[in-house]
Design a binder for these strands. Structure first.
Lengths: 225, 225
DNA sequence: TAGATTGTTAATCGATTAACAATC
DNA sequence: TAGATTGTTAATCGATTAACAATC
């Protein structure tokens, strides 16, 4: 596969936009819609400028057709290639609580190349119980499973307290990336990719807007009372 | 409370940074650390420029003390005020599945001003079961609860299919903001605040970095094999 | 005081948008 | 062909950073 490895790192914001294109174009293609889409249509839906859509698609090697638009299949395939959805990764979940269970049963993961091969917990009452087709295992098995199954990603859904020490174990065991849902920052070596999913950040924005609405006449025109 | 309502809308990115300051400063204050903090310390932790920290704090009215730094209590209080954490909002959760349950029991919400007053589901088997101290109710009750308890925020943790029609009901019932965890876009009136929590976006970034690591010599220096 | 740290203006950088030529 | 849409360069805009004066 001629993947020119000299490509430079794509920016976070671009990756995020690509994901939005991916979902819009993918969902749109479900009916009997045309198999091409104009950059302006994507832009309208995502509330952005159409030039940026074209630039982004050009950046990942997708060429459009003047007068026609972009072939949806080419967009989808290019994004899958760039984001790595065509490759397959094994992952484990640490923490068989409600959030861990919810993530374990998120069916989209498989389509995105992610395969949950094990779920761990430190509560013996949970050992052996099935979470989305996988039996919950004790934490002692962590290192051996990571090594034997060449697990590259760990999804951390434990409380803040034990999160750091589990992260240390994961790194030592050879995990390359951690998706951290624990409400605490993790210290890891620079070559470990960590993404901290900070749920309260989303709430902050909603709270801010609710407050504005309550306090003043925030919008230019008053609207209904 | 002299809240000058002419303030202009703060940018999304700023709100996000404020939330990070809030967590860093709040957590830092737990021990017997000094009650002041330098912008450079915050910046170092968050891997950003200290000038930006000072700019951001100035933007929300926090003044530092030359040679001393910023008082942590002032930072925390200002962010709480700006983001609306000192006000109290009632919220409901639609969907008593694993994700709904996980969110219902997220204890930080209370400290951020959010109070879950009801959980709804369309599965009769779940009616009456307790989720974090609240009994699950049938969907029919949605409108009356929203109206009677003046609910302003709804947290949507249902499958993509019913999400839009539930959102329509919520808007008609008077909800002002929707926190959407359903994997689908929602169409709502412009004065309804919607935040779409797109879990797969996080995975996209991790997947991208895992792929890079696998394929090429991505980092400038090779490191250990 | 001297010096550490803030506050603010100016410079830089990067990202977005506008303009328009190229294309089928 | 005429015209719709892409592709790309140039202009604009905004956000970040650098520089340095102000302060206690």
């Amino acid at each position: 596969m001629a993947d020119h490895s000299g490509e430079r790192l794509l920016k976070h914001a671009l990756l995020e936009r690509l994901m939005h294109y991916y979902y819009y174009v993918g969902q749109r293609g479900e009916g009997s819609t045309p198999d091409t889409v104009a950059s302006a249509e994507i832009a309208r839906f995502l509330n952005m400028d159409d030039t940026l859509v074209r630039k982004d698609l050009a950046a990942i090697g997708v060429r459009g057709y003047p007068r026609v638009g972009f072939r949806t299949a080419e967009i989808v395939e290019a994004i899958r290639r760039v984001l790595g959805f065509n490759d397959s990764y094994r992952a484990v979940i640490i923490g068989a609580g409600r959030l861990g269970g919810a993530l374990a049963s998120y069916t989209d993961f498989t389509r995105l190349g992610l395969h949950i091969v094990a779920v761990f917990d430190n509560d013996p009452a949970r050992y052996g119980s099935m979470v989305s087709g996988v039996a919950v295992q004790p934490m002692e098995n962590l290192e051996s499973v990571v090594a034997w199954r060449a697990v590259r990603l760990a999804i951390l859904t434990v409380p803040a307290g034990p999160a750091q020490s589990i992260a240390d174990r994961l790194v030592r065991a050879g995990v390359q990336a951690i998706w951290n849902f624990a409400p605490t920052a993790l210290v890891t070596p620079p070559d470990t990719v960590v993404r901290h999913e900070h749920i309260a950040v989303g709430l902050a924005e909603l709270s801010y807007h609710l407050k504005r609405r309550q306090n003043g006449p925030p919008e230019p025109r008053a609207g209904e009372g």
